[in-house]
Design a binder for these strands. Structure first.
Lengths: 145, 145
DNA sequence: TATATTTTTATCGCATACGATAGAATCATA
DNA sequence: TATGATTCTATCGTATGCGATAAAAATATA
């Protein structure tokens, strides 16, 4: 790789990840619109469907986000009626985020989102699984440093 | 994959890409600070180092961004003295974005950015190249749809 | 046990992203 | 050659991300 090539867009490691992330999220949006969720809000729902309640920090640990980003997102989701906020009585610093009935009910409808998205992608399933595996490895390695 | 597993965070295709994108860009930031650039501004510089001048649309085609995102970024970069804006006399709709001398000079300093970043990553080079190849394929496939 | 430290959440300011749209310039074509 | 469609850039509003920081509560420790 010559000195010149180092700064070519095609040779960057991060750019295709950055661009792919945005492009895929655009593909999600029409399906998420039907659920009245944005993509980050959808991720918060996802971790709560796995376990509820969770504290803000616990949600952040799953999504690699901090309270400066999560607090406003959570506020909007409370307004929409999908989640509720209660103080932890054992530790008044913590806030417990709990699914409401509406939030829980949304899970059924949400099953269609990944299915619909996959129908839009013309990449062999094997390649997709390989991609996911590599990206998780990459992600966990980058977080560790 | 059971009905329940479809919505597990671990099984999502997009999430590790979305999270990795943000985590890597965080790693870039200290090096970009030295150049007085944000990550998207760095990408604009990169395509201009390849070819200058370019129109806003041409930059957007490289980066998968539209004028609603690029116009404010370009304004900030003009303010920093890295680029200039002139109307295309042959087509008054178009705006030509040109590197200034300072902007061109920045290229030398920028050579260190990808090098420094790679020094932070403990993943075999072969894996990184494989990852980049897969992400480009994924990206171009997703854009096509 | 008083106090320094850490944890947890929230706020603020700035910089993207992006859908919707506007307005000017150019193009296509009836 | 009018005029309807398209292209190009910019603006606006909303929703993230994130560094820096504040404030309250809990923990550690001198």
């Amino acid at each position: 790789m010559s000195k010149h090539d180092i700064l070519l867009l095609e040779n960057q490691l991060c750019f295709p990840i950055y661009a792919a992330s945005r492009v895929i999220i655009r593909h999600y949006q029409p399906y998420l619109d039907e659920l009245n969720l944005t993509y980050p809000q959808y991720l918060v729902m996802m971790v709560l469907w796995e376990k509820s309640p969770l504290t803000v920090t616990e949600i952040g640990n799953r999504l690699f986000l901090n309270s400066n980003t999560l607090t406003p997102i959570i506020k909007k989701m409370i307004k929409k009626g999908f989640i509720e906020k209660t103080r932890d009585l054992d530790d008044e610093r913590k806030v417990k985020i709990t699914l409401t009935e509406n939030g829980l009910a949304l899970q059924d409808k949400a099953q269609q989102v990944p299915v619909s998205l996959l129908n839009n992608i013309n990449i062999p399933n094997e390649d997709l699984l390989k991609m996911r595996e590599i990206m998780w490895k990459f992600l966990t390695d980058m977080v560790r440093v």
